[in-house]
């Protein structure tokens, strides 16, 4: 079965014989010297362009490589600085803690008492104004008196060049009192 098919195929590929006398005359063809197809300046230009292109590619690659090197270098610097920053921040935090410990009132007191010989007093005297001022129950009446006095002052003309009465308290008359013993 395969042989007839091959025969058919061979028959199909058989070409018809060429007609020696063409019906239409073909123009004469010459072999052209390749150097004559383009002018000399044109070719030089192309070479330059090609050269420039190669140079551009090589340059771009070099710039890219250099940029990569710079980026890598900068990244390394950033990493180093970041590491230093982290370390410095940690040191700052440690120093803040150390300062807080040094400023601790308990530590300051301990050094003052143990090393510098400070002795805490058994009692502390405070100076205060002589005028006791009003208590809550007296405050209302005092405020009323003050308002009345202010109203009267407002009615009186202030003498020109007159000396002002100095108000306030003086420590000259301050005296030391001790609270009486407590009672229930």
């Amino acid at each position: 079965m395969a042989t007839p098919a091959r025969a058919v195929s061979t028959a199909a590929r058989a070409l018809p014989a060429r007609d020696p006398s063409p019906k239409r005359a073909r123009p004469e063809l010459d072999v052209v010297d390749r150097r004559r197809t383009t002018s000399r300046p044109h070719r030089r230009q192309a070479n330059i362009l090609r050269g420039l292109g190669v140079l551009f590619i090589v340059g771009a690659l070099a710039v890219t490589a250099a940029a990569h090197a710079f980026v890598a270098s900068d990244q390394q610097r950033i990493d180093t600085l970041q590491s230093k920053l982290t370390q410095t921040l940690a040191e700052q935090q440690d120093l803040q803690l150390a300062r807080a410990e040094l400023e601790s009132p308990a530590r300051v007191l301990a050094i003052a008492e143990r090393e510098l010989g400070m002795i805490s007093p058994q009692s502390v005297s405070y100076l205060a104004p002589v005028d006791p001022g009003p208590s809550v129950s007296q405050a209302g009446a005092a405020a009323a008196r003050a308002a009345l006095s202010a109203a009267e002052t407002a009615r009186k003309p202030v003498p020109a060049g007159g000396d002002r009465t100095r108000t306030g308290t003086s420590l000259a008359g301050a005296r030391s009192l001790t609270i009486p013993p407590p009672v229930r």
């Binding site: 805490s120 058994q122 009692s123 502390v124 005297s125 205060a128 005028d131 001022g133 001790t178």
Partner: peptide, 18 residues
Amino acid sequence: APTGAQGLSSGSSGVGGL
């Protein structure tokens, strides 16, 4: 600011030396 009254002018503390 001191308001006066009660302790009058001055006094001493008996606790803790404050």
